[in-house]
């Protein structure tokens, strides 16, 4: 890097070279992504196939005769080798076809569609709360390092981050929706066909649950990166130039601290998607998490596979994004 900057005259030629280099790196990133996603799909398929229980028996009930079971297995293609079934499934997925639900023969895509919108709304609302709030809290704690606010924030975040989401959710229900007060509904009922944003009161508690753990995690990372930046020589230089505290915080420190915190925010987005599944179950929120739990209950393999794949892919995507932002 050092000699790149030493010779300003040569920049255009060098930039061309660097551009080609960047393109190649992007190519290798995409190739890596394809391989990883392929492995993920295989893992999802075979792991769900390995679940105990017989699908045919589940559909026909315990009284089914062996003959009828055999016919159904033949119909569903369950007798074929696993690899063939996987290949069928994967080529369907690549064409946007996740198969049919075993419960009511509805296409999986249409079954998932609305639920996915509900879940994404939940995750999006949570991120909209988490990012500004953790910035605010993190910067405030960093600029008042070692104050009671900072120490309180660190202490509470230690406790919060040790608690699983479903405990935080249960505590919130106890505090705000049942035992202590009845400010909010303990169960998030969103009628089929409705947009979740029309039922804000139903979203508040699930979003709060996701946000609490997110803010205390990301806020701590923001705090640390802000403190690192504050200890840097360019911040000392800004003080020696007579800049005011406000200018130092917002013009000199924050842009640098953000550069370090953005990859972390992307990771938090990945965690939030995982958290959605648990939180939906706690609040009975009609999203993909609830659907997953229901489908696991009745061995609805095509739905389970589609949902796990969606969660895995989005988790992978945000992790990759965090990596890419970090390396920049």
């Amino acid at each position: 890097m050092a000699d790149l900057t030493l010779i300003p005259v040569a920049t255009t030629a060098r930039q061309g070279k660097r551009g080609g280099h960047r393109l190649r790196r992007l190519g290798s990133l995409v190739a890596q992504g394809v391989v990883t996603l392929f492995l993920v799909s295989a893992l999802v398929f075979f792991a769900t196939q390995a679940l105990p229980g017989d699908v045919a028996k589940m559909i026909l009930g315990k009284t089914a005769t062996p003959d009828r079971l055999a016919v159904l297995r033949e119909q569903l293609g369950l007798n074929r080798p696993l690899l063939v079934q996987y290949w069928d499934w994967l080529s369907g997925v690549l064409h946007g076809d996740f198969g049919e639900s075993l419960a009511n023969h509805e296409p999986v895509t249409s079954l998932i569609g609305e639920r996915l919108v509900n879940s994404l709304s939940l995750a999006l609302a949570a991120m909209l709360v988490i990012i500004p709030l953790s910035l605010l809290v993190g910067v405030a704690a960093a600029t008042h390092k070692d104050s009671w606010f900072d120490k309180g924030f660190l202490g509470v975040s230690m406790v919060i981050n040790a608690l699983p989401d479903f405990i935080i959710g249960t505590l919130l229900i106890a505090l705000l929706a049942t035992n202590v007060s009845h400010l909010l509904p303990p169960v998030s009922i969103i009628p089929v066909g409705d947009n979740p944003w029309q039922h804000l009161s139903a979203m508040i508690l699930p979003v709060a649950t996701l946000s609490i753990s997110g803010v205390f995690y990301l806020g701590r990372l923001v705090r640390v990166s802000f403190i690192d930046v504050t200890n840097s020589e360019y911040i000392e230089m800004a003080r020696l130039k007579g800049m005011s505290q406000r200018v130092i915080t917002f013009r000199h420190a924050l842009p640098n601290a953000l550069a370090a915190a953005i990859p972390a925010a992307s990771l938090v987005a990945a965690f939030t998607i995982g958290g959605v599944v648990v939180v939906e179950y706690v609040f009975n929120y009609p999203g993909i998490g609830m659907l997953l739990v229901e489908s696991l209950g009745n061995q609805n393999l095509p739905v389970i596979q589609a949902l796990v794949l969606i969660v895995a892919v989005s988790y992978f995507f945000f992790n990759r994004l965090a990596d890419a932002l970090e390396r920049r």
């Binding site: 360019y234 230089m237 800004a238 020696l240 130039k241 013009r251 000199h252 842009p255 640098n256």
Partner: peptide, 14 residues
């Protein structure tokens, strides 16, 4: 004040 190491004393984002 003129610092020892301008590489670290100049703000990289400005």
């Amino acid at each position: 004040y003129v610092p020892q190491d301008p590489a670290t004393a100049l703000n990289p984002k400005l």
